[in-house]
Design a binder for these strands. Structure first.
Lengths: 175, 175
DNA sequence: CGGCACTTCCAGAAAGTATCGAAACTCATG
DNA sequence: CATGAGTTTCGATACTTTCTGGAAGTGCCG
């Protein structure tokens, strides 16, 4: 992935943003390129084609295609049809609140729920055990499960709400 | 990393929990082994030595040492001194709320704040630009920055609060 | 149909990380 | 101040994940 030098400050800022956002992505369990593609679409107005993404990021077709597809799978990017064009174009959901809700819902489904399931399973298999060690294990896991369950419910509730209902309440609470 | 077959249901459950938690860790940007070490300490009562961790997870000394050190760095694990023992022992913070606050604070510091800094930097360099494209870019980033900033403040506030103040409020709000 | 304009799949290559094993270091102790 | 238990560091290797480039697929249109 290459970068061309520019002296256009806007282009510089875009590049900086896209690349750095990509780097940050990896600490959140998102691959660099996927984060970069998302960042790119987020700050680009007319929808982009696969080739545009390839060109902007210097990625291969397969890579661009795969990451676009995955972003569509997450619901963060939409395929759009451009009048009189055969090629597919992509645009990101620009509204930050909607984006947050989408991410929350997907992570919940893909990561929190499996974790809960694991905890429940371990709780179930140690339910009947009477030894002190088993009791302690069971108690520790059940506290964890309860916490994760609450977090799950909070995300559920928040991401099903209107931004206009939630944000003001939060800001007020922050005081 | 090996596993020995057991017919002890508690041991089985512990193994299952530790290993699966490790697997889940990777979707949250935590390395498998670090998540496993943490899980292990979380469900183990007497503090463990490096050698215990090595034995339980079948990891090398270097690996165990490195991950223990990193967990101490996150504040999720403490070194403890056992009477009349030269060797160091480790125990995890068991309280789930405290654990959550620690993680929130650390991720905030390591990941959210750098992201905010990036956003601010890009906002600053495009501040004066008057073209339509620049305005759109600036607006998109500033919405993102505002959202991330609010999230940051929320985490700050929550993780500085008492569990007893926050959880009931949340449960009430969930209704 | 057959050509064209795209999209998707796939197997191997490359890059990036985690892990090991062993050597180097630390430091209380005899 | 030599010993040795215990800890840390480090280069080499093994493993995963990500990426590439080309082959195969899809479906529109003349």
């Amino acid at each position: 992935m290459n970068q061309e030098p520019t002296s256009d400050p806007l282009e510089d800022a875009r590049q900086t943003f896209v690349r750095s956002w990509g780097a940050l992505g990896s600490s959140w369990g998102v691959s660099r390129t996927m984060a970069m593609v998302h960042a790119l679409l987020l700050v680009t107005d007319p929808p982009l084609s696969t080739d545009d993404v390839m060109a902007e990021l210097g990625a291969s077709r397969g890579n661009a295609n795969m990451n676009l597809r995955e972003l569509v799978g997450w619901g963060l990017v939409r395929r759009v049809v451009v009048e009189g064009e055969r090629r597919e174009y992509f645009e990101a959901e620009k509204d930050v609140w909607t984006m947050f809700c989408t991410i929350a819902r997907e992570r919940k489904r893909r990561e929190i729920e499996p974790a809960l399931a694991l905890l429940e399973a371990c709780l179930a298999t140690t339910k009947g055990l009477r030894s002190g060690k088993a009791k302690a294990f069971h108690k520790q896991l059940s506290e964890l499960a309860q916490f994760v369950g609450t977090a799950n419910a909070v995300l559920e509730r928040i991401s099903a709400s209107e931004q206009s209902k939630v944000i003001p309440a939060i800001l007020k609470w922050l005081k």
